[in-house]
């Protein structure tokens, strides 16, 4: 059986909120290392990869591998019933028909119990190769969100170029063009504002802004976002969570000119 208690229901709410517009029906794969999810969007252009490690829960118990097939719209409806300060416990039997969600108030004696019917989801898992990325950029998540939202007003696509000069986000549209360049930057008082650029080779790739704006819905999960780029491979957008957990998005580049 699965029993996973999360001190902050809000964390799970935010994760589901961040991915629910990209993927609809997902398997939450539970085993003794934690709860993982991998799902592609309908167009097979973007992929979500979530890992909530067992250390993120207290206690965490999962005796055998269980795949919980859940519709995220249904899950969102139930998670709305949790207060943000509630403690969330996920429970399931070994061959479950339902997943149970228990919300406990830390301050009062309220206990709310919900269940969601599970779905049989035949989802193929993709092997994501280990990649030595040509450029890795860590920057404030809010800054990345701002850039994507600003540029989508002008164009469908953004080129991300990383060179010795820094990282340049540029777009061209019908009304004109836009570009934002960031250089490495260290803020001693506010390290969450740092921009760190590690580059082993110059990279230049073009991506659909629609997907990037969608990924940025995860901005509330982490102060910083990490972008990993190599020429001609999918972009990795990573939001780190406490206890070595993470929410990652992969996006296939646009090809040709």
């Amino acid at each position: 059986m699965l029993e996973a208690r999360l001190e902050q229901a809000n964390l799970f709410k935010k994760v589901v909120d961040a991915i629910k517009d990209l993927v609809q029906d997902c398997n939450f794969d539970c085993n003794d290392s934690g709860i993982a999810l991998q799902a592609m969007d309908n167009s097979h252009v973007a992929l979500v990869s979530m890992m909530l490690r067992s250390e993120s829960f207290a206690p965490f118990r999962c005796d055998r591998n269980i795949a919980l097939g859940i519709n995220l719209t249904s899950l969102t409806k139930v998670l709305k019933c949790a207060q943000s300060d509630d403690i969330l416990t996920l429970k399931a039997e070994d061959a479950p028909d339902v997943v149970e969600l228990v919300f406990e108030s830390a301050e009062s004696d309220r206990i709310s119990e919900y269940s969601i019917k599970l779905m049989d989801i035949d989802q193929e898992h993709l092997g994501i190769p280990e990649t030595d990325y040509g450029a890795t950029i860590s920057m404030p998540a809010a800054e990345f969100q701002r850039i994507c939202r600003d540029l989508i007003a002008l164009s469908e696509s953004v080129s991300i170029e990383c060179s010795k000069e820094g990282v340049k986000f540029a777009c061209q549209g019908d009304i004109g063009s836009g570009a934002v360049t960031l250089r490495q930057h260290t803020n001693v008082d506010k390290p969450e504002m740092n921009v760190e650029i590690n580059m082993s080779e110059p990279v230049s790739l073009t991506f659909s802004l629609k997907y990037l704006v969608n990924f940025c819905k995860a901005s509330g999960l982490s102060n910083q976002v990490r972008l990993c780029l190599s020429n001609e491979v999918p972009l990795l957008v990573e939001y780190s969570l406490a206890n070595n957990s993470h929410l990652r998005f992969y996006l296939a580049p646009k090809i040709g000119d």
Binding site: S43, V45, L47, E124, H125, L126, G127, S208, I255
Partner: peptide, 14 residues
């Protein structure tokens, strides 16, 4: 214009 390719080109099913 540039074309949007899919992820399956890069990530193979396990």
């Amino acid at each position: 214009a540039s074309a949007q390719g899919g992820l399956m080109k890069y990530f193979a099913p396990k």
